[in-house]
Computed example of a mutant assay.
Amino acid sequence: MKALVRLSDRLGQRAEAALGPAVLPSLARFTFAATLLVYYWKSGLTKLDGGLTGLVSPSLGAYAQIFPRAMAAAGYDASQLAGWQHAVVIAGTWAEFLLPALLLIGLVTRLAALGMIGFVLVQTATDLVGHGALSDPAALGAWFDRAPDAPILDHRLLWVTVLAIPALMGGGPISVDALLRRRAYAVSG
C-alpha cells in the first residue's frame, strides 16, 4: 500500500509542477468566461438606461437592484439617496463590465479576480438582506445537502472558488499578463 501511495504522490507532484501553473489559471478563466461573463455583462446592461451615459448616470433599476430597501424608502426617487450610494451604484456598474473583461483577457488578473470575489460577496449580501433571500430557503439553499443548485450558497461558493484560482495564481500562460511579463523579461534580460 505504501508503494502505491508513494507512486501516486510522485505522479501527482510531477503533474502539479508541470501542468498546475499553466492549466489551472487558464481553466479557471475559461470557466468564468463560459459561465459568468455574459451574466455580468447583461446585468450591467440593465443599469444603462441611456446607453453609455448610464456609466455616469445609471438607471433607476440600477439603484433598485443595489439598494432595494433604500429605494423603496425613498419612493424610488434616486435623488433622495446619499452621495456615497450614488458612488457605489456607479462603481458597481463599472465593475460589472471592467472586472469580467480584465479576467477574460488576463490583464491585472489577480486584482481583477479579487475584485470579482469582493463583487460576488457584496452581491450576495445584497441578495440576502436587501432582496430577502435570507428568508427564502429555496434561494438560500444549504451546504452539505443533496441539492447542488441553490442560487445563493451553492452557486456563489462555486463562483468564489473558481475566482480564487486566478486570484492566487495569476492569469496563466495565455493572458495579457504573461505577454507583458515575457516582454519585460526580454527587454531587461
Rank of each mutant, 00 (worst) to 15 (best):
S59M: 05
R110L: 07
T53G: 12
Q80C: 10
V187Y: 09
L134S: 08
P166F: 05
M169D: 02
L36F: 13
L19M: 14
L157S: 15
R181F: 12
A125H: 11
S175W: 01
L11C: 13
E16A: 15
M116H: 02
G172S: 10
A164N: 08
G75Q: 10
D9C: 09
G171N: 03
Q80D: 06
G54N: 04
I174W: 12
A28L: 12
G54S: 10
L180I: 11
D9L: 15
P68W: 04
T53F: 10
A74S: 11
Q13P: 00
I152K: 01
H86D: 07
A70I: 07
G106K: 01
R6P: 00
S26F: 12
A178I: 06
W84Q: 09
W143N: 08
A87N: 00
D145M: 04
I174S: 05
M1C: 12
R29S: 03
A113W: 01
A101H: 03
I117N: 05
V38R: 13
T161Y: 11
F144N: 08
T124D: 12
I105T: 08
S8M: 13
L134V: 11
F97H: 02
T31C: 13
V120C: 06
T93F: 03
V176R: 01
L99M: 05
I90Y: 02
A101C: 11
G20R: 09
L163D: 01
G83P: 01
S43E: 08
A73I: 10
L48V: 05
P100C: 07
D136H: 12
A74M: 08
A64F: 11
S57W: 09
L45H: 07
A164K: 06
G130R: 00
Y39K: 06
L55W: 04
G61L: 11
A112E: 00
H155R: 15
L121R: 03
R69N: 12
G171P: 03
D127I: 13
Y63N: 02
G92K: 00
S175A: 13
L121V: 15
D145V: 11
R110G: 02
P137K: 08
V162M: 10
R6N: 13
R156I: 07
V108L: 14
T126C: 02
Q85K: 04
Y63L: 08
V120L: 09
V108F: 14
Y185N: 06
T109M: 06
F119H: 10
G189I: 10
L27D: 05
V160Y: 04
G115I: 05
D77I: 10
F30I: 15
W41E: 01
G83E: 06
L98V: 15
W159E: 03
A167Q: 01
L158M: 14
R6Y: 14
A91Q: 06
Y185H: 13
M116F: 03
L103H: 00
V23Y: 08
A74C: 09
A82Y: 04
L98R: 03
I117L: 10
H131A: 04
Y76F: 15
H131F: 10
V176E: 00
A62K: 02
G172I: 10
L121W: 05
F30W: 12
H86M: 06
L103P: 00
W41H: 05
I174H: 08
G44Y: 00
S8Y: 12
